[in-house]
Amino acid sequence: MKKTILILLFALAAYGAATAATLPFRSGEILSAELSTAKPGIANEDPLAFPLSFDRRIYAELVVKIAPGRGISIHDYALEAFGVAYPCIALRAGDSAFNADVWEVRRANANEKYTLLFVLDATLVGLTPEQTLTLQAQFPPKDRADQPVPFTNLKNRSFTPPRSIPNSGNMKAARK
């Protein structure tokens, strides 16, 4: 009986480790990576700030925890897919609304979740339930600038609110 319970507990722990995870990146940890065609609200958005050369859009959100003493900016990272680099267009702290006038957080609160928002070409990205995109650091050193990140495609559903994402993350473990 004890052996059966131990095997069951081990299986549940292994399953949990395979289905929920965080992913380390230069500035801290990625808790969630999602794609959605549902546009989140962005206060003070200027369509000329990030002109788009495509009509079908899909949005990508990275919810992150920033390492102590670090900051983050919309200029720090881009997402690369099929040879195209897409810039970060907005940033927010916690569950607040995106505000295009806020481009950086100089000293991140270690207990706060931050969200980076990207807009990508939906004719290339988001065609499958899961997709790995490359997070590119926009500052040196270049030898550690690219990070593969597995995204979950929510299709037309809204993004998961940061308050609903556990500190242990909601990402699926990257497939090897």
Rank of each mutant, 00 (worst) to 15 (best):
D146H: 04
P140E: 13
P141T: 13
D121P: 02
T132F: 04
F118R: 00
Q147V: 04
A137C: 10
K113V: 12
F139N: 03
Q136F: 11
Q147N: 06
T134Q: 09
L124S: 10
D143Y: 08
T115E: 03
Q131N: 06
Q138Y: 05
P141W: 09
T115W: 01
L133I: 05
Q147W: 07
Y114V: 12
L135D: 01
Q131T: 11
Q147G: 00
Q136N: 11
L133D: 02
A137T: 09
V119G: 00
A137D: 09
T115R: 02
L116F: 14
R144W: 07
K142R: 15
F139V: 05
P129H: 10
L116D: 14
L124D: 10
Q138R: 10
T123D: 15
T134W: 08
K113G: 10
F139E: 07
E130D: 08
V125D: 04
P141I: 12
Y114T: 11
D146Y: 06
P140M: 12
G126L: 04
Q131C: 02
E112D: 13
D143C: 01
Q131S: 08
L124T: 10
R144V: 14
A122V: 00
D143F: 09
A122Y: 04
D121S: 07
F139P: 02
D143H: 07
G126W: 06
T132Y: 04
D146V: 06
E130M: 09
Y114S: 10
P140C: 11
F139C: 00
A145D: 06
G126S: 03
